[in-house]
Nucleic acid binder design. Structure first.
Lengths: 274, 274
DNA sequence: CAATGTGAACCTATTCACAGCG
DNA sequence: CGCTGTGAATAGGTTCACATTG
């Protein structure tokens, strides 16, 4: 793997754009809810609202699947549920293994939505011998030694990694070697995998940082507009002269801040460009 | 809400593209690792590999932040850590509340990466009175009744929702009303929020479905070999129970087509934990 | 001369707006 | 007439390739 091939073909996707694929589950959920309320049909407008997208996008998305609607009427809910399910491959059974049964792994094992849509937790695997045999969500935890056998015996092709970051790459390699070709990674690490293996990551820390970025912008923007509701005492703690809306990244020598918030090797008064 | 306002300005982002913002945390993590190993500088190539992207993209990303590299040499690790941290708003303290202390909420509360980068769990909130006072990750759980007071007193602007889907929207509204403007949603629901509030969602079920989609493609591609281990499940093609009171949408299209259109195996679980 | 920084080309995705159909 | 389905227009993101610079 020359340069960390963590991509997915993207072109392989039989015409359906990746962005569309990522929204199908959303539509499916909204449709399922309608189905449970025995609603027979929906317009693109209604469904789009329920799924949190706009109707043009939804119609375009559906157009990639084929013409499943009726002009002047809308879409047949049941039929669409089936079509999308089939498109997503949910009409078949997907045995899944979860590796790393800590707090998170246990939460995932217990997660209802997991089992609901074609996914089945085939096994829970953990490196701690003390966990072995202990049932979590009704499923006995098995030791990592069994990993390869479990994958093979159950024909597992989807693995979920919920181990500490340090163990993730190794676990990943074992999963892949045993035949897993899709991985959902909760460990805060970049996994490198051979071509043909899909990796999706879910990273709490990254999501929070993205929110913080936007949050910071809001704060600097309309002055104390927000202050109406939040007295915001703790927010302005910044040791840096904070540029506020900062149209320019003139960094005003934040060495102090940089050094103070980063741990061990602390302050290396970095190079100062212009 | 004309068209599901779940968006974020996207243009507000003072020039930095959203896609770039989403990668900054990745770079930051890789840089922090280098920093801990006391590596003084990195080239775009090295750093890109560590972050799992390609170097052109990384350089372009950094170019939006300003010119922080040295031609012929690379980037100063410490300096870059600081610049990215500042850009992301991590040089300040972000008190966060987690609402819904079930399996997942507890896992989040215990998650180390949480506290590490400027984020601090200010409070844990749950609707179950029995949980009140019980410490999770060393922090006593408080009852939902206290929500508004907690938000206000702590100047919380970021909230994490880890409740069941049914409670999410309501919790969301209370958080927003109390002053929260950024929400990380783990509940499998579309949240609708007023303008100016950011929502990011993390949805296990959606990620798995996306993986299943690609997995299915892989299988269908080479040949039909997978079946080796999957014992053909119950095959019931058309799920269409048709709740047809009123407009009967012509059975031919719906049922017939659905049933006859390629059906390796049917059975759509489609049960949603409402 | 190695590696950044960036214009330009390219590709992907979203939105518009309306023709076409039930 | 209402709503789908889609070409065309636009916006956003990625990759290329190279001039520029320490």
């Amino acid at each position: 793997m020359a340069t960390g091939r963590t991509h997915r073909p993207a072109t392989r996707s039989r015409g359906i754009p990746e962005a569309t694929v990522a929204r199908l589950p959303l539509y499916l959920r909204a449709l399922t809810a309608l189905s449970e309320r025995s609603v027979p049909t929906v317009s693109s407008e209604e469904l789009a609202t329920a799924a949190g997208v706009n109707s043009a996008k939804l119609r375009k998305d559906f157009s990639y699947l084929g013409s499943y609607g009726t002009r002047g009427v809308g879409y047949d809910v049941e039929y669409l549920v089936y079509q999308i399910s089939r498109e997503l491959g949910l009409t078949q059974d997907w045995p899944v293994v979860i590796v790393g049964i800590g707090n998170l792994g246990a939460a995932l094992a217990n997660y209802g939505g997991f089992a609901s849509r074609g996914f089945r937790v085939a096994a829970l695997i953990d490196a701690d011998p003390a966990m072995a045999g202990k049932p979590v969500a009704g499923i006995p935890v098995q030791h990592t030694d069994e990993l390869e056998k479990i994958i093979t015996d159950n024909g597992v092709s989807i693995g979920v990694i919920a181990t500490p970051a340090g163990a993730a790459q190794q676990v990943c390699e074992r999963l892949v070697a045993a035949g897993v070709t899709s991985i959902l990674n909760f460990a805060p690490t970049v996994l490198s995998v051979p071509d043909g293996v899909d990796v999706r990551k879910v990273d709490l820390s990254i999501e929070l940082q993205i929110l913080a970025f936007h949050e910071q912008r809001k704060a600097g923007e309309g002055a104390a507009a927000e202050a109406a509701l939040s007295p915001a005492p703790a927010v302005v703690t910044a040791p840096v002269p904070d540029a506020g809306p900062g149209t320019d990244p003139e960094a005003g020598t934040g060495t102090g801040a940089a050094a103070s918030r980063k741990g061990p090797d602390g302050d290396v008064p970095a190079v100062m460009p212009a």
